[in-house]
Amino acid sequence: MAHDVMTRVPASAPADVGARSPRRRKGRHWTAWAFLAPVVVYLVAFYAYPLYRNLDLSLRHYTVRSFVQGDAPFSGLDNYRTVFADPTFGPALLHTLVFTFVSIAFQFAIGLALAVFFAQNFRLSATLRALFLVPWLLPLIVSASTWTWMLNSDSGIVNTALELIHVDPVNWLTSPDWALTSVIIANIWIGIPFNLVVLYSGLQAIPADVYEAAAIDGATGWQRFWRITFPLLRPVSAITLLLGLVYTLKVFDIIWIMTKGGPADASTTFATWSYRLSFGNLLPEFGPGAAVGNLLIIMALFFGLLYIRFQRRQA
């Protein structure tokens, strides 16, 4: 899957195809860009403009009036200052980091464990693995609402189950101590299929004879996992984690549907905050909303660069 991609493209040595002479190389160069032209045009058309607009929104002082009239004065980094000074900033940053890293850690660990488990061919393993992907097919509004249903303080199935084993009910969505945990649990659930698919395909690429050699050496199952599976899976793991990070930073719908970022700000992340500023209020604040959105992109960029560095070191 995606793992090869990122690893290969920046790092690979050009294995040349019909590029023996300089002229041919130049020709190839132009042909290559002809092949790439649609995608480049596409990128410029569809990514550059939204990005530019979002940047523009975040650098002007927009009221609803000036948003419509288009005469908002340039205000430099004022929106960013507003956002930094907002009492929501600290908690939102913390929640974003906790949400992202805890989600990824569990998604990855569970996804890997399941991938290893399903890689041992047993009866029904292929079918069950396919069924694991079903949560991916549901519209988020439905899966998130289902979680809201199950975690309801009073009539939720989870609290009913807890009661059966004589544990005090938990106010999953309405207690400031639990709201973030609840949305993380739901997000982990949604992320497991992706991790399972990518890591499973990574496992498939590990040759069986390595294991056979290890078996002859008398390695236990656990040793095999740590000494062979895990190291050989490292590049796949890296890209899984990076993609997971990108997708998790962006998550807002699950949280928005389950808790609206509440109670108070107990489960607000940058993504939900940005949405609330721009759309979740009767009076939209597009400027600060866009500023928060851009901070998210910067965070994602940071981790992207970190990944590239990791990649270089590996090479």
Partner: peptide
């Protein structure tokens, strides 16, 4: 390729507004 990697990072809601 790096641009493509970054392109995946733009939140959908920002894309949608643009």
């Amino acid at each position: 390729s790096f641009v493509l990697l970054i392109a995946q990072m733009i939140p959908g809601i920002i894309m949608a507004m643009g």
